[in-house]
């Protein structure tokens, strides 16, 4: 049974910010409610105000602005998993979205809610690290932009009273876009190796206690940028979740991958390093023995997926770069 609270149902972000002024006590934003509603139902959360963001159109978009992919915070995992734009430009996010809970959960659960809930096992979180995503946060004191990584770990950088996550953005990741988000038209490509584009791939994987509808015991996201000729890793971002309070980047491992080919020996080495990471992250925990083994399977899944994508990319790269993700029909909302 829920305690009594007051509820606001604004239609726009501007209205939301206006309403804030009159609210006293604890404010909780409501996205899909998949975390908050059961928490209020059993009394773990007792906010004074609940502000429903689920019907604010400007928060529900998924679009490409020519440089970055921008998601509104109330984009649901169903929308994200089904978005051709995300599939193309941030595949690991689409993969993670498609593996959150059940259909019913994905139809409600939002990316913003996943971030704000900050569960150690939240499936979008390692993905946002791997994509080096940035958040736009709005509140009584105005707007701030912050990298998801800092938002997550830096004291004082998380959500402050009355603040809401408005949007999430990351650099477009397909061929035809640079890693930092600049769009590179095919004819003006200045990348090395005879004007060919770098290959960028990303993948997400998780291990739970059953095939589907399961909270991760381990999850991982990886982003790789490779030089197209020899398939040498130029840049990578690797993040692991469900090992401690927050998911984290593995910068040492990323460094070691640079300059190597994405072959089986790389996977073997990375796996070994991942096992060390597990040992370091949860030493002596009951789950350590299991997770240090199971991460082998996860690494095999994720890197196997990456290898597969690379070979597909290579095969199709002779057909020239694609048109990027700027297609109108791929955008939702806004």
């Amino acid at each position: 049974m829920m305690h009594k609270f007051r509820m606001a149902c604004p239609d726009s972000v501007a209205e939301t910010l206006e309403l804030l002024a009159g609210m006293e006590g604890e404010i909780a934003y409501l996205g899909g409610g998949t975390d908050l509603v059961p928490q209020m139902q059993d009394g773990r959360r007792q906010p004074d105000w609940v502000v429903d963001l689920s019907q604010i159109p400007e928060l529900a978009c998924i679009r490409f602005d020519g440089e970055r992919i921008r998601l509104g915070s109330t984009a649901t995992f169903t929308q994200i998993a089904g978005s051709a734009l995300i599939e193309e430009q941030g595949r690991c996010l689409a993969q993670a979205a498609g593996q959150v809970g059940s259909v019913q959960i994905r139809n409600r659960a939002t990316l913003g809610g996943n971030i704000a809930s900050a569960s150690p096992a939240g499936d979008s979180l390692p993905v946002l690290l791997a994509l080096d995503a940035k958040l736009t946060v709005l509140g009584p004191a105005g707007e701030r932009r912050i990298s998801f990584e800092r938002f997550q770990i830096e004291p004082g950088e998380g959500l402050r009273r009355g603040e809401l996550i408005a949007g999430i953005d990351f650099a477009a990741g397909s061929r035809g876009h640079t890693g930092d988000g600049r769009h590179v038209p095919a004819d003006k490509s200045d990348f090395s190796a005879g004007g060919r584009h770098p290959i960028r791939v990303s993948a997400f994987g998780k291990i739970g206690s059953r095939q589907s509808v399961t909270i991760a015991k381990l999850n991982m996201a990886a982003f790789l940028e490779m030089e197209p000729g020899e398939g040498i890793v130029v840049k990578s971002r690797l993040a692991l979740g469900a090992l401690g309070r927050h998911p984290f980047r593995l910068r040492n491992v990323e460094e070691e991958m640079r300059g190597r080919r994405l072959d089986d020996s790389l996977i073997v080495d990375v796996t070994k390093r991942l096992q060390e990471v597990v040992d370091g992250a949860i030493p002596g925990r009951y789950s350590q023995t299991y997770k240090r083994q199971a991460i082998r399977g996860l690494a095999a899944d994720v890197f196997g997926d990456l290898q597969q994508q690379v070979s597909v990319e290579k095969a199709s790269s002779s057909n020239g770069p694609d048109q990027g993700g700027g297609k109108e029909e791929q955008e939702i909302g806004c």
Partner: peptide, 21 residues
């Protein structure tokens, strides 16, 4: 499970007012 605008949702996780309109 019920449908909201033809999408399946768990009605135990949705506040009634979220179904407005």
């Amino acid at each position: 499970t019920v449908l909201v605008d033809n999408l399946a949702v768990n009605s135990c996780l949705v506040l009634a007012h979220q179904a407005r309109g």
